[in-house]
Write a protein that binds this DNA or RNA. Sequence first.
DNA 1: TGACGTCAAGATCCG
DNA 2: CGGATCTTGACGTCA
Length: 426
Amino acid sequence: MEELSVIKIGYACQALAVEDTQLRSCIMKNADEERLKEIIAYNLDALERIMEYNRAQEITLFRISSELVPFGSSPVNSLKWDLRFAERFREIGRKLKEYGIRVSMHPGQYTVLNSPDTAVVKRAVEDLEYHCKVLDALKTAPDSKLILHVGGIYQDKEAAMKRFEDNYKLLHDGIKARLVLENDDKSYTISDVLELGLKLGIPVVFDHLHNRINCSDPSKNDSFWIEASKSTWKDIDGRQKIHYSQQEGGKKPGSHSLTIETREFVRYYESILFHDLDVMLEVKDKNLSAVKCILLITPESKGIQDLEKEWARYKYTVLERAPHIYQEIRTLLKDKTSYPAVQFYSLIDEACKEPENIGHSVNAAMHIWGYFKHQATEKEKTAFLKSIENYRLGSASSSALKRQLERLTRKYGNPYLAASYYFLLS
DNA sequence: TGACGTCAAGATCCG
DNA sequence: CGGATCTTGACGTCA
């Protein structure tokens, strides 16, 4: 029997508009044992809350931020954090398993394994060990990956690739079992990376936008490269992964877009849907786009009530940008037998592109104020009305207004508003 | 030497 | 004094 291909969608590092999930950090000179312990404990709690959110949204793919343990790979942090917090890591790991969430990590552009400078390589190895230790402490399966770029060129790509091979061989087996290579936006194309991956037995993540910027062969489409990368994924490595992002218009090539644009995404999805893939989105609005893309491509397991939940989170943003679209979406969602996901998100995309309009923004702010006007103190009332006036006159920004309303939302504990995307400053 | 990317912490300013 | 706003940090490569 033929199995249907499945596309799963995930997002990276942060869950926006989810309370108490923002990771904390500190600067090096303040990184004493006391503070580090406090931050790690907090960050693990935050990670657990992100996973609860992911489960509720049926998101089963997530990248854990490298910031989870501040200075996790530096002598500045001499805590045996993996042992000290072993039980907390295990608890979270159990939930990952129970919820079916596949996690990965992605050391940044400053982790360079192929540097000619041995001190840089040493730090790169330490950094990989840190990331690996997090995944090990969570007791994740071998399909939980560590994604890395090849590194720099140093005027001689061949020699630099050879150095990658040599240094890779020195890594311990725990890291090798998790390491995955990705094509980057300026040095190593997908064919370079495939050459290394096939030779060394390392799975390869194909990055859509990087390949557009740093293209190895304009005559080949994404489907070709996905197929070419497929054989680098062995059974034990889990489902093949790719990265997907869109170019932010008007910014330099490679800049990630603020959100995943609906119609462009649907077109892309249709071009890859015959592959079985985990797709990691790299986009500024993180989980917002993940929820969007999941609702766009999995209509069989979703219904109009899911769009209505999304509408509850988007409505004030739409109201402040484009009241006519607000009305249009209300009409669109009236037919409870329909599932107009593409139209719904296209309208939201359209609304978000509208420029700020003072009258509309005041209107939306007054709607939110309506939740508090009876419980707010006189002082809060005076302050809010004054801010509205200042905003109207052009002497205050809308973000000041939103901060004020967000503070009231937290103070008076309104969970409906707390989940609203309205407060994510534009 | 500074851009690149990231984004909260830290520092400073303001009322 | 608290809140708003501006600056710094931490990493490696490359021009």
